[in-house]
Design a protein around this nucleic acid. Sequence first.
DNA 1: TCCTAACGTTAGAAATATATAACATTACGT
DNA 2: ACGTAATGTTATATATTTCTAACGTTAGGA
Lengths: 68, 68
Amino acid sequence: MKTKIKEYRAKNNMTQLELAKEVGVRRETISFLEKGEYNPSLKLATKIARQFHVSIEELFIFEDSDLD
Amino acid sequence: MKTKIKEYRAKNNMTQLELAKEVGVRRETISFLEKGEYNPSLKLATKIARQFHVSIEELFIFEDSDLD
DNA sequence: TCCTAACGTTAGAAATATATAACATTACGT
DNA sequence: ACGTAATGTTATATATTTCTAACGTTAGGA
Protein backbone atom coordinates (compact mmCIF):
# COMPACT_ATOMS: atom_id res chain seq x y z
CA MET A 1 0.00 0.00 0.00
CA LYS A 2 1.15 3.52 -0.77
CA THR A 3 -0.05 6.64 0.91
CA LYS A 4 0.05 10.37 0.35
CA ILE A 5 -0.14 11.23 4.03
CA LYS A 6 3.33 12.72 4.02
CA GLU A 7 2.50 14.93 1.03
CA TYR A 8 -0.69 16.23 2.57
CA ARG A 9 1.04 16.75 5.85
CA ALA A 10 3.64 18.89 4.09
CA LYS A 11 0.98 20.84 2.22
CA ASN A 12 -0.64 21.63 5.54
CA ASN A 13 2.59 22.38 7.35
CA MET A 14 1.83 19.72 9.85
CA THR A 15 4.18 17.57 11.85
CA GLN A 16 3.66 13.86 12.48
CA LEU A 17 2.99 14.68 16.09
CA GLU A 18 0.36 17.28 15.26
CA LEU A 19 -1.43 14.96 12.87
CA ALA A 20 -1.23 12.16 15.39
CA LYS A 21 -2.88 14.30 18.04
CA GLU A 22 -5.60 15.46 15.66
CA VAL A 23 -6.60 11.92 14.80
CA GLY A 24 -5.96 10.43 18.22
CA VAL A 25 -3.03 8.11 17.65
CA ARG A 26 0.63 8.07 18.49
CA ARG A 27 3.29 9.70 16.39
CA GLU A 28 4.87 6.34 15.70
CA THR A 29 1.63 5.12 14.21
CA ILE A 30 1.75 7.96 11.68
CA SER A 31 5.37 7.17 10.95
CA PHE A 32 4.62 3.52 10.22
CA LEU A 33 1.60 4.44 8.17
CA GLU A 34 3.57 6.83 6.00
CA LYS A 35 5.96 4.03 5.22
CA GLY A 36 3.09 1.79 4.20
CA GLU A 37 4.15 -0.67 6.88
CA TYR A 38 0.68 -1.36 7.90
CA ASN A 39 -2.80 -1.41 6.95
CA PRO A 40 -4.76 0.98 9.15
CA SER A 41 -8.24 0.43 10.45
CA LEU A 42 -10.96 1.99 8.32
CA LYS A 43 -11.75 4.30 11.19
CA LEU A 44 -8.25 5.68 11.36
CA ALA A 45 -8.06 5.99 7.57
CA THR A 46 -11.33 7.91 7.67
CA LYS A 47 -10.08 10.29 10.33
CA ILE A 48 -6.91 11.10 8.43
CA ALA A 49 -8.74 11.57 5.14
CA ARG A 50 -11.20 13.95 6.77
CA GLN A 51 -8.38 15.88 8.37
CA PHE A 52 -7.13 16.69 4.87
CA HIS A 53 -10.56 16.91 3.24
CA VAL A 54 -9.80 14.21 0.73
CA SER A 55 -11.24 10.81 -0.02
CA ILE A 56 -9.74 7.68 1.40
CA GLU A 57 -8.92 6.48 -2.09
CA GLU A 58 -7.02 9.70 -2.76
CA LEU A 59 -4.93 9.20 0.35
CA PHE A 60 -4.33 5.44 0.33
CA ILE A 61 -3.43 3.68 -2.89
CA PHE A 62 -3.77 -0.06 -3.20
CA GLU A 63 -2.27 -1.86 -6.14
CA ASP A 64 -4.02 -5.08 -7.05
CA SER A 65 -1.00 -6.93 -5.72
CA ASP A 66 -1.53 -5.31 -2.33
CA LEU A 67 -4.89 -6.97 -2.05
CA ASP A 68 -3.80 -10.61 -1.83
CA MET B 1 -20.38 2.83 11.75
CA LYS B 2 -23.05 1.95 9.24
CA THR B 3 -22.55 0.04 6.07
CA LYS B 4 -24.42 -0.67 2.85
CA ILE B 5 -22.77 -4.03 2.30
CA LYS B 6 -26.04 -5.87 2.74
CA GLU B 7 -27.79 -3.64 0.21
CA TYR B 8 -25.09 -4.08 -2.40
CA ARG B 9 -24.99 -7.77 -1.75
CA ALA B 10 -28.71 -7.96 -2.43
CA LYS B 11 -28.39 -5.87 -5.58
CA ASN B 12 -25.79 -8.31 -6.83
CA ASN B 13 -27.67 -11.41 -5.72
CA MET B 14 -24.77 -12.44 -3.61
CA THR B 15 -24.73 -14.44 -0.42
CA GLN B 16 -22.53 -13.63 2.56
CA LEU B 17 -20.55 -16.74 1.81
CA GLU B 18 -19.98 -15.79 -1.82
CA LEU B 19 -18.85 -12.29 -0.89
CA ALA B 20 -16.63 -13.70 1.84
CA LYS B 21 -14.90 -15.99 -0.64
CA GLU B 22 -14.45 -13.20 -3.17
CA VAL B 23 -12.70 -10.96 -0.68
CA GLY B 24 -10.91 -13.71 1.19
CA VAL B 25 -12.51 -13.66 4.61
CA ARG B 26 -14.90 -15.83 6.55
CA ARG B 27 -18.64 -15.59 6.26
CA GLU B 28 -18.87 -14.60 9.92
CA THR B 29 -16.63 -11.65 9.24
CA ILE B 30 -19.09 -10.37 6.65
CA SER B 31 -21.94 -10.96 9.06
CA PHE B 32 -20.27 -8.93 11.80
CA LEU B 33 -19.33 -6.21 9.35
CA GLU B 34 -22.87 -5.85 8.10
CA LYS B 35 -23.99 -5.29 11.65
CA GLY B 36 -21.38 -2.57 12.09
CA GLU B 37 -19.89 -4.57 14.93
CA TYR B 38 -16.43 -3.85 13.89
CA ASN B 39 -14.17 -1.63 12.10
CA PRO B 40 -12.52 -3.46 9.20
CA SER B 41 -8.99 -3.00 8.04
CA LEU B 42 -8.61 -0.56 5.17
CA LYS B 43 -7.49 -3.43 3.00
CA LEU B 44 -10.65 -5.40 3.57
CA ALA B 45 -12.81 -2.32 3.13
CA THR B 46 -11.04 -1.67 -0.17
CA LYS B 47 -11.61 -5.20 -1.39
CA ILE B 48 -15.32 -5.07 -0.65
CA ALA B 49 -15.76 -1.64 -2.21
CA ARG B 50 -14.01 -2.80 -5.38
CA GLN B 51 -16.14 -5.90 -5.51
CA PHE B 52 -19.17 -3.63 -5.85
CA HIS B 53 -17.44 -0.92 -7.87
CA VAL B 54 -18.22 1.77 -5.35
CA SER B 55 -16.12 4.04 -3.19
CA ILE B 56 -15.28 3.17 0.36
CA GLU B 57 -17.17 6.22 1.55
CA GLU B 58 -20.27 5.04 -0.31
CA LEU B 59 -20.11 1.68 1.39
CA PHE B 60 -19.08 2.60 4.91
CA ILE B 61 -20.67 5.56 6.65
CA PHE B 62 -19.06 7.11 9.69
CA GLU B 63 -20.96 9.60 11.78
CA ASP B 64 -18.79 12.08 13.60
CA SER B 65 -19.71 10.29 16.81
CA ASP B 66 -18.24 7.09 15.41
CA LEU B 67 -14.87 8.74 15.18
CA ASP B 68 -14.14 9.25 18.88
C1' DT C 1 28.90 24.11 18.55
C1' DC C 2 25.00 23.15 21.26
C1' DC C 3 20.13 22.55 21.77
C1' DT C 4 15.99 21.17 20.33
C1' DA C 5 12.34 19.64 17.13
C1' DA C 6 11.19 16.26 13.92
C1' DC C 7 11.57 11.87 12.35
C1' DG C 8 13.28 6.88 12.29
C1' DT C 9 13.29 2.58 14.52
C1' DT C 10 13.04 -1.27 17.87
C1' DA C 11 11.02 -4.35 21.37
C1' DG C 12 7.33 -5.72 24.08
C1' DA C 13 2.49 -5.02 25.90
C1' DA C 14 -2.31 -4.16 25.01
C1' DA C 15 -6.32 -3.92 22.15
C1' DT C 16 -9.03 -5.40 18.45
C1' DA C 17 -9.88 -7.69 13.85
C1' DT C 18 -10.26 -11.99 11.93
C1' DA C 19 -10.30 -17.23 12.04
C1' DT C 20 -12.30 -21.34 13.60
C1' DA C 21 -15.79 -24.40 15.11
C1' DA C 22 -20.12 -25.13 16.64
C1' DC C 23 -24.91 -24.56 17.17
C1' DA C 24 -29.40 -21.74 16.57
C1' DT C 25 -32.68 -19.55 13.73
C1' DT C 26 -35.00 -17.93 9.74
C1' DA C 27 -36.78 -18.38 5.13
C1' DC C 28 -37.78 -20.60 1.19
C1' DG C 29 -38.71 -24.48 -2.16
C1' DT C 30 -40.68 -29.00 -2.69
C1' DA D 1 -44.12 -30.42 7.16
C1' DC D 2 -39.56 -31.39 5.71
C1' DG D 3 -35.01 -30.33 4.07
C1' DT D 4 -31.73 -27.19 3.07
C1' DA D 5 -29.49 -22.71 2.27
C1' DA D 6 -28.61 -18.44 4.35
C1' DT D 7 -27.88 -15.93 8.26
C1' DG D 8 -27.27 -15.04 13.33
C1' DT D 9 -24.59 -15.81 17.29
C1' DT D 10 -21.26 -17.50 20.81
C1' DA D 11 -16.78 -18.85 22.57
C1' DT D 12 -12.07 -19.33 21.99
C1' DA D 13 -7.77 -18.92 19.29
C1' DT D 14 -4.71 -16.34 16.25
C1' DA D 15 -3.02 -12.36 13.76
C1' DT D 16 -2.27 -7.66 13.31
C1' DT D 17 -2.87 -2.93 14.66
C1' DT D 18 -1.84 0.33 17.96
C1' DC D 19 0.36 1.82 22.37
C1' DT D 20 4.23 2.62 25.18
C1' DA D 21 8.82 3.59 26.28
C1' DA D 22 13.21 4.10 24.79
C1' DC D 23 17.03 5.38 22.01
C1' DG D 24 19.23 7.00 17.52
C1' DT D 25 19.69 10.24 13.69
C1' DT D 26 19.18 14.36 11.14
C1' DA D 27 18.43 19.25 10.30
C1' DG D 28 18.04 23.95 11.72
C1' DG D 29 18.27 27.94 14.92
C1' DA D 30 20.57 30.51 18.61
